[in-house]
Simulated assay, not measured.
Amino acid sequence: MGKKFFVSLALLAALGAGLFRTRSEAFAADIKGKHASEGLGCADCHKTDKPTAAAGIEACLDCHGGYDKVAERTKGMHNNPHDSHLGRMACLKCHRVHAPSEYLCLECHSDFEFKDK
């Protein structure tokens, strides 16, 4: 029997033993920042314990109070990212829960600094 057969057999054994997690299980174990420190779990945003897709923007706005409230809370920032010339955008364009955030503004504005005035 060939090497590929034994590699396949080893992978099947590992899966059977539960050594590999599904993608959603790996993400669930990797909630970052304030959401994790607040004790939030998958169902708090995704409305299910085993998510198969990103949470909807409604989940963000329900907890954070809507676009206007978020923009008001960050109005003291130099270059307020929540009051943008691009208008209202989906939160996940910048904010990530399972990975580091990426600021969309920086794709064009390389000189922006997001800090309190």
Rank of each mutant, 00 (worst) to 15 (best):
M1D: 15
G2S: 15
K3D: 13
K4W: 11
K4C: 09
F5E: 14
F5N: 08
F6W: 15
F6A: 07
V7G: 00
L9S: 11
L9R: 06
A10S: 12
A13R: 10
A13I: 12
G16F: 10
G18E: 08
G18L: 03
L19C: 10
L19F: 14
L19N: 08
R21G: 13
T22Y: 05
E25V: 07
A26L: 13
A26I: 06
F27G: 02
A28R: 10
K32V: 07
K32I: 05
G33P: 12
K34I: 14
H35R: 14
G41I: 12
H46W: 10
K47F: 04
T48L: 01
P51W: 05
A53F: 11
G56C: 00
E58S: 10
L61N: 08
C63D: 07
G65E: 14
G65N: 09
G66Q: 06
T74P: 01
G76H: 05
H78F: 03
P81D: 01
H85C: 00
M89S: 05
A90R: 11
H95P: 04
H95Y: 11
H98C: 01
A99N: 10
Y103S: 06
C105Q: 10
H109I: 00
D111S: 02
F112V: 09
F112N: 04
E113P: 00
K115D: 12
